[in-house]
């Protein structure tokens, strides 16, 4: 953990060498999701609601998933950009060091410019929360925090799966964006607006549902059935990263026996 922060600080120092580009990219990261949010706003202006969900409820969904996405893109960028590490042969370097590959890959890259996207989602979050009649309690606040954590874990898990794929081929990696960018795009709206099979896939296979849709029902008081379960879903969703971790280790073993 201490090592991770060391990596963080050295990357931050590097980034600060290029201030102008940092600011420009951060601003870009602010406006790209912003235009999507504006689109969402206009759609609600025209249609009023979507399958019984109001604008601010969806905005909350939007904020949570974008927050999780920007945090994972910032802190787990090493796995997201892993293909370049393999192509350049830099991964060998990590293997001759006495630390786990996980920490080293995680520390190989950070994308601080995602602060723009983060800021945008925080603004949406605050705006949505201040317009929703929620009776707050400590548990609800914890649930909200857990939702974001669970999102970060799930995105990181997907990055790891994609990174593992690089050990076999660096082609076709774009498929992973179905689950990262696609997952983000999809989870902007509550899952129940989609076809059943989509909702099921993104609840039980890649558990984006646990990031916002399921626990939001508890927070917004929409829940039918057991509140405790809805509340705990983010924790279950976070477990997604465990199998990803195993797959990653399998990939590293494969790499060391073939050295592609």
């Amino acid at each position: 953990m201490k090592l991770y922060f060391k990596y963080l600080s050295i990357h931050f120092k590097s980034q600060m060498q290029y201030r102008t580009s940092f600011w420009l990219l951060s601003i870009g990261q602010f406006f790209i999701p912003f235009s999507i949010f504006v689109g969402l706003y206009f759609l609600f202006e025209r249609f009023g609601q979507i399958k019984g969900w109001q604008f601010f409820e969806v905005a909350l969904c939007f904020a949570v998933i974008h927050m999780a996405f920007s945090l994972s893109e910032c802190f787990a960028r090493g796995f997201d950009m892993f293909s370049s590490l393999v192509v350049k042969g830099e991964f060998d370097r990590l293997l001759v060091r006495p630390r786990s590959t996980f920490v080293q890959v995680l520390g190989s890259k950070f994308e601080f410019t995602r602060v723009g996207r983060l800021l945008q989602s925080v603004i949406v979050l605050v705006w949505a929360l201040s317009n929703l009649p929620i009776e707050w309690s400590t548990i609800k606040a914890i649930t909200l925090a857990l939702m974001i954590v669970s999102g970060v874990f799930i995105f990181t898990g997907i990055y790891m799966l994609a990174a593992t794929m690089c050990f076999w081929t660096v082609q076709g990696l774009e498929v992973a964006s179905i689950f990262t960018d696609g997952g983000r795009e999809m989870a902007q709206y509550p899952l129940n607006i989609y076809q059943k099979w989509v909702a099921r896939f993104f609840t039980y296979v890649i558990p984006f549902g646990t990031v916002n849709y399921l626990p939001l029902q508890y927070i917004l008081g929409k829940g039918d059935g057991n509140e405790l379960i809805h509340m705990l879903t983010p924790v279950l969703g976070s477990l997604f990263i465990l199998p990803c971790f195993l797959v990653w280790q399998f990939g590293v073993r494969h790499y060391r026996s073939t050295g592609s």
Partner: peptide, 26 residues
């Protein structure tokens, strides 16, 4: 291990910072 064609130093920070990080890695 020194790979002559690749670098293990961080491109944009002073060399000494890279050394310090390696100290922590090892």
């Amino acid at each position: 291990v020194v790979f002559g064609q690749r670098s293990q130093l961080w491109w944009d920070v002073p060399v000494i910072d890279s050394f310090e990080l390696l100290k922590d890695i090892y």
